[in-house]
Write a protein that binds this DNA or RNA. Structure first.
Length: 555
RNA sequence: GCGCCUGUAGCUCAGCUGGAUAGAGCAACGGACUUCUAAUCCGUAGGUCGCAGGUUCGAGUCCUGCCAGGCGUACCA
């Protein structure tokens, strides 16, 4: 619809210039917007105001000239008006709306998609929780955001790969191994001193029991280092398997699980460091090896190899991100917790050092989740092992409610997640409000199948012509907006735009439902309205699918 | 100190990359079920968009400076 108006305006501007009414033939881009106020019409443009300087004319005068040269628009535009400092407002013919619906069943589950990716390869890396414990709610938000962003980009024509990076190397894995090994020894009757910096959670004891089930008492006979590594490997594998299952239960799957350790095993980290030595991007100071990240805007240089010869976490990160780009991704997107924001400059610096445009590396920083129960904060201490796991939350409130709520805020804002509210099947809980639309329409369609209203999936011009009440038009206008919302969500990587759109569309539908009966005595009207609500159902389902939320037939 | 994020109705938040008179939900108050699902709808009320400047025809939106809150600022991961 906007494109048609844009075309008409461009045509009018050209004709006005040819007729000598406009001095310049240089025209700015045409922005069409939807006014907030109904009296300002269905669409409006600031076109006349934007070109005022160039044309050296008053905006309102230009608007008059433009509207006078609008041509061939009678069946589309009922009325134009010039308002304020020079807006042109367009009132669309009520009958012009309904035919737009035909695009929805025509595209079906692809409705809303625009090919802005054009097959370009994008990687979205998310969750990537350390395999030292189960996922908690914060990871759940990252999972919901990452998965939805990946869905949206894929829907919009990108070739998307989802990846989970496993930090299965370094000191924390040793700590995990030690924690489990100590609990294992205690289990076998040895007196052990359990240090405070070991993982305290109950799941560590559980892992120790499983370690015993698998290996019996054989680890006691091994040397300390060997036993520790056995314990660490066993525990990490178990935990990763648990994380993978938790994510499956949450509706999230990955194309690849990438091991940090593999970067060391393949010699990739060492090669990376060597190449930086060769190109002089690293230097020695105080016995350590430093990377010149300040050259790319970081506030200080960063250590890649410590004085004791061990590499830092940053070293493998450098190698990892270079490896990503070598795999051919045009864009590499990492979803991180907001507490990691300080790492962006150094990773960007490392990417730039490898001769890659750092803008191709993007980070989505997801703010933290405050878990509440009935308004009261739930204790979340990782160190003490007291935290509510993602699995607990999914079991308690359900996958759909959890995922939807995670996406009801811009990710840059902290989120209060109240378990009691998430369980409520009321207006407080928007997921049911949206899903209810789908179920209600499914119910109408079931009923219609038993009526002589005829087939509903073909557009009947007479039926469409019945869709001319203000309620019909309001609903159609909502549906027409959907593709633009998807495009904006993809460009900005902001899934919450779809969430809010769906809540608004749901409101428009529920309102319609209470005002207009779909199945009425007149079969032609019934047909038209059934066609309309079926289109609503399709858009609701498409949107929910992008968010990873189900669209139920019954509730 | 420095860096990033945030500040919009009593509460929780949107605001389509600068448009016209500021938008929802919750909470409050008053209404609507003999009907395709009341997990719904309709109405009333609620605002100095943190503060102060600046940019221009026009600012919640962009720029600068303050104020407040969160997070970060390791040869930790």
């Amino acid at each position: 619809m906007k494109d048609r108006i844009r075309y008409l305006l461009a045509d009018a501007a050209r004709k006005a210039h040819q007729a000598g009414a406009l001095p310049s033939d240089v025209f700015p881009g045409i922005e069409i917007e939807e006014p907030k106020i109904e009296a300002h019409g269905d669409y409006a443009t600031n076109f006349a105001m934007v070109m005022a300087k160039n044309q050296k004319m008053a905006p309102r005068r230009i608007a008059e000239i433009l509207t006078a040269h609008l041509d061939g628009a009678e069946d589309l535009i009922a009325e134009t008006a010039i308002a304020g400092p020079g807006f042109i407002n367009f009132h669309i013919q009520p009958a012009a709306w309904a035919p737009l619906l035909k695009a929805i069943p025509a595209a079906g589950e692809r409705f809303g998609a625009a090919d802005i990716g054009q097959g370009r390869k994008v990687q979205v890396e998310f969750v990537s929780s350390n395999p030292t414990g189960p996922l908690h709610v914060g990871h759940g938000r990252g999972a919901a955001v990452g998965d939805a962003v990946a869905n949206i980009l894929a829907f919009c024509g990108y070739d998307v790969q989802r990846e989970y990076y496993i930090n299965d190397s370094g000191r924390q894995i040793r700590t995990l191994g030690l924690s489990v090994l100590l609990r294992y020894k205690a289990l076998l009757g040895q007196a052990v001193d359990f240090p405070e910096d070991c993982y305290q959670g109950a799941y560590i004891r559980e892992l120790a029991r499983e370690l015993h089930d698998r290996h019996g008492e054989t680890l006691l006979a091994q040397e300390e280092e060997a036993a520790l590594m056995s314990s660490a490997r066993f525990a990490a594998e178990k935990i990763i398997a648990g994380i993978r299952q938790d994510l499956i239960d949450f509706g999230v799957t990955f194309d690849q699980w990438f091991s940090e350790q593999s970067l060391y095993d393949s010699g990739r980290v060492a090669a990376c460091i060597q190449s930086f030595r060769d190109t002089g991007q690293v230097y020695e100071k105080d016995g350590a090896l430093w990377f010149k990240t300040t050259a790319c805007g970081d506030e200080k240089d960063r250590v890649v190899v410590r004085g004791d010869g061990r590499t830092t976490y940053f070293a493998s990160d450098i190698a990892y991100h270079q490896e990503k780009f070598e795999r051919g991704f045009e864009r590499v997107i990492d979803v991180w917790g907001a507490d990691h924001h300080g790492y962006i400059p150094r990773i960007k610096a490392s990417v730039a050092s490898a001769g890659i445009d750092p803008d191709r590396f993007e980070v989505i920083l997801v703010q933290l989740v405050n878990l509440l129960r009935g308004g009261a904060p739930v204790a979340m201490s990782t160190r003490a092992g007291e935290f509510v796991t993602l699995q607990d939350v999914v079991n308690e409130v359900g996958r759909d409610a959890a995922r939807f709520i995670f996406l009801t805020r811009h990710y840059a804002n902290p989120l209060d997640f109240d378990l009691e509210v998430a369980k409520q099947k009321s207006n407080d809980n928007p997921v049911y409000y949206v899903q209810y639309v789908h179920a209600r329409i499914a119910s109408i369609r079931r009923k219609a199948a038993n009526m002589p209203a005829g087939p509903v999936d073909d557009a009947d011009p007479a039926g469409l012509a019945c869709l001319d009440t203000p309620e019909d038009v309001a609903l159609i206008k909502h549906l027409v907006r959907y593709p633009a919302v998807v495009t904006a969500a993809a460009r900005q990587m902001e899934p919450h735009r779809i969430t809010f759109y769906l809540m608004n569309l749901a409101g428009a539908f529920h309102s319609y439902y209470n005002k207009q009966r779909v199945l009425v005595d007149d079969p032609v009207t019934s047909h038209g309205r059934l066609y309309l609500v079926t289109a609503v159902q399709t858009v609701i389902r498409n949107g929910l699918t992008l968010l990873g939320v189900s669209a139920p037939e019954r509730m």
